[in-house]
Design a protein around this nucleic acid. Structure first.
Lengths: 247, 247
DNA sequence: TAAGATGCCTACTCATGAGTATGATTGAGC
DNA sequence: GCTCAATCATACTCATGAGTAGGCATCTTA
C-alpha cells in the first residue's frame, strides 16, 4: 500500500549479485529507501529462483546478510513483499502505455511499442512476481488491487487493437481474444527465461512482435509455390481421418 | 511413477460437482481405480481453485467426504498428486501429436490440429496443474521427468513449424521463438479461464488458431485503404519521439 | 461363519516458517 | 559526553499442514 515505486533495474546486463547495502560499510548508514529497495529486489530474485512459497524470509534475509527481523523493519509482511514486486513490474508496462499514448503513428505501431516494453518487463527481475502473483496467495484487498492493475493493462491492449482495426493498421479480429493471446505469449516468457537466457529481453520482445505481425500463414509474396504441391505424402495417412480434427 | 493414466474428463460441459464415489453407496465398494481417479481429479480441482500450496490434503479429503489418511491410501504424497495431475493433462497433448503424425495434409494444418487439442487440454480441469506445476515444488526426480515431457511437446511443435516452413504452408520464421509464443499464449489460458468461462475450451482454441494464422498486419486483400491515411492525428504527438520506441 | 484382507477413521507427531518481544548497539544532534 | 531515535540481532511463540500409528468396521472366501 506504500505509494513509493521501485525504480526500474539499473541499465545494462542483469547484475549477477548486487552488493548488499546493509553490509556496505561498518557503520549503520541511514539510507532507508535504498535499503528498502534492496529488500524488495532481493525478494524478487528469490521468488524467481524458488517460488513464493518455497522462499522463506530467512532465505531473503540471508541473501542480504541480515536477519529476519530486519526484513520486517522495512516491510510489514511477506505478502506485501510479493505485492511490491508485482507493482514494480507492472509499473514498467504502465509507463509504456503513457509513453505511447499521444504518438501520431498507426495503432499497430503503438501496440508494438507497448508489447516490446511488456516483453522486457516480463524478462526483468520482477517478471516472475508480476506474472505469477496469484490472487490466492494474497489477501482479498491486495488481490483486488492487483486485479485492477492487470485489467487496466488488458483493456489498454484491447483498446489499441480496436483502434488498429479501425485505422486499418491491424487485421480485423476479436480484440479480447487477441489481447489474451498476445499477453499470454509474453507473460509466458517469465517461465522459460530463467532457464534459457540466450537472448536479452529486448531481443525476445522484438522476435515476438515480428511473429505476431506476420502470422503463420504465408503472405502472398511468400507463397508463390502452392503449399499443397509441396506437402509430403505420408504413409498411413488419410484425408478422411483429418476431417475429425475439425470437430 | 504409476504408469496408469487418467482418462480424459467425461464429454460434455464441465461437470459442476461430480458425486464422490466414496459416499456413493453405504457399502464400501472395491473399485480402487475409480476412487484413485476421483482423488486425483479432486486434487486437480482444488489446486486449480486455490493453488498447490494453499490447498491442504484435508481440503481435498473434505471435498471427497473422507479424511486425510484415505488420500494416502491411494497416493503416496501430495507431490505425487500434483505429478499425476500434470501427467493427465500432458497426456492429452501427446495424444494429439500421435493422432496427427501420419496425416497427409500440410504441416500447418497438422500444427493447427495439435494447437486446438493443446488449448482444450489447458482449459480442462488438469490445465492448471499442467501449466503451473513448478519444478520448485517437486523433487528432483519428478522435476526431471516433467521437464522431459514438456520439452518433448515443445520440440514437437518446433518440428511441425519447421516442416511447415519447408512445405511452404508456414511463413518462414524462427521455430524456437514461434513455438514459445504459441505455447505461451495457449498455456496462459489456464490463468484466465477460471474467471472467464464465457467460451468453451474448443472455442478458445479455435479463436487462437485463427489469430495465429492471420497475424496482426492486414493481409493484402484487407488493406485496400492505406493504413496511414486512416491514422488519427494526435494532439501532442510527434513522429520524432516515436523513433526512440525502436531502441 | 471364522479368518484374513481391504477400506477407512481417530488421534496423534513433528518440521517448518511467519511473525514478535525484547534488548543491544550505533549515529546524530545538543 | 549525553540522550534519543534509528537499526538490527537473539531467542522466542504459535499456527499450519504433511505424514503416520494403530485400530475398528466391512467384505470376501473358504
Amino acid at each position: 500500500m506504500n505509494s513509493r515505486r521501485i525504480a526500474p533495474p539499473p541499465a545494462g546486463k542483469a547484475s549477477v549479485q548486487p552488493p548488499s547495502p546493509f553490509r556496505a560499510s561498518r557503520e549503520r548508514r541511514r539510507d532507508r529507501e535504498l535499503k528498502r529497495d534492496a529488500v524488495i529486489r532481493a525478494a524478487a530474485r528469490e521468488f524467481n529462483r524458488r517460488g513464493y512459497h518455497n522462499t522463506s524470509l530467512d532465505d531473503i534475509a540471508a541473501r542480504l546478510e541480515v536477519t529476519k527481523p530486519t526484513i520486517y523493519y522495512y516491510v510489514t509482511s511477506k505478502e506485501q513483499l510479493l505485492f511490491e514486486c508485482f507493482v514494480a513490474g507492472v509499473e514498467q508496462i504502465r509507463a509504456a502505455f503513457r509513453e505511447v499514448r499521444d504518438l501520431a503513428v498507426p495503432a499497430r505501431e503503438r501496440l508494438n511499442a507497448v508489447l516490446r516494453h511488456y516483453g522486457q518487463a516480463v524478462a526483468s527481475e520482477f517478471g516472475w512476481c508480476m506474472v505469477r502473483a496469484e490472487d490466492q496467495d494474497l489477501s482479498p484487498a491486495m488481490s483486488r488491487h492487483i486485479k485492477v492493475l492487470k485489467s487496466e493493462i488488458d483493456h489498454g491492449i484491447r483498446r489499441l487493437i480496436r483502434e488498429g482495426v479501425q485505422d486499418g493498421s491491424i487485421q480485423p479480429c476479436d480484440a479480447k481474444m487477441t489481447a489474451f493471446a498476445l499477453a499470454g505469449a509474453l507473460n509466458w516468457i517469465a517461465h522459460w527465461y530463467r532457464e534459457d537466457r540466450s537472448l536479452t529481453g529486448a531481443q525476445i520482445a522484438d522476435a515476438f512482435v515480428t511473429i505476431f505481425e506476420a502470422g503463420l500463414r504465408p503472405r502472398s509474396s511468400a507463397s508463390r509455390v502452392s503449399a499443397r504441391d509441396r506437402t509430403r505424402r505420408r504413409a498411413r495417412g488419410s484425408l478422411a481421418r483429418s476431417s475429425k480434427l475439425q470437430a
